[in-house]
């Protein structure tokens, strides 16, 4: 039987280029992204639903939405 592989979308932060402004955290509907120690935004992958709001908001455009294996 062929196995059905489900893919999910998640947000990924290019941490080196993040300016830690927190715009992403403000728009996340599930509070999955937050600014870690004033250095960079970090995504809680277990909470992220991959909606892309943070990526659209990020003024530096350092957040991307990628498909990952569920």
């Amino acid at each position: 039987m062929e196995q059905i592989r489900r893919k999910r979308r998640k947000a990924f932060v290019e941490e080196k280029a993040c300016v830690a402004c927190g715009c992403c955290a403000k728009v996340c509907p599930v509070s999955a992204i937050s600014v870690w120690k004033g250095i960079t935004a970090k995504v809680d992958q277990s909470k992220c639903v991959g909606c892309g709001k943070c990526a659209a908001e990020c003024p530096a455009s350092v957040i991307s939405i990628r498909e990952v294996e569920a």
């Binding site: 300016v19 830690a20 402004c21 715009c23 004033g38 250095i39 990020c58 003024p59 530096a60 455009s61």
Partner: peptide, 25 residues
Amino acid sequence: LFKPRSWCVYCPMGTMTQLICRVKN
């Protein structure tokens, strides 16, 4: 020209506070 809060990318206060956080942490 770019995104609403593009200023945040090169805001000197933002850069400075991020630098302080980097050193401090």
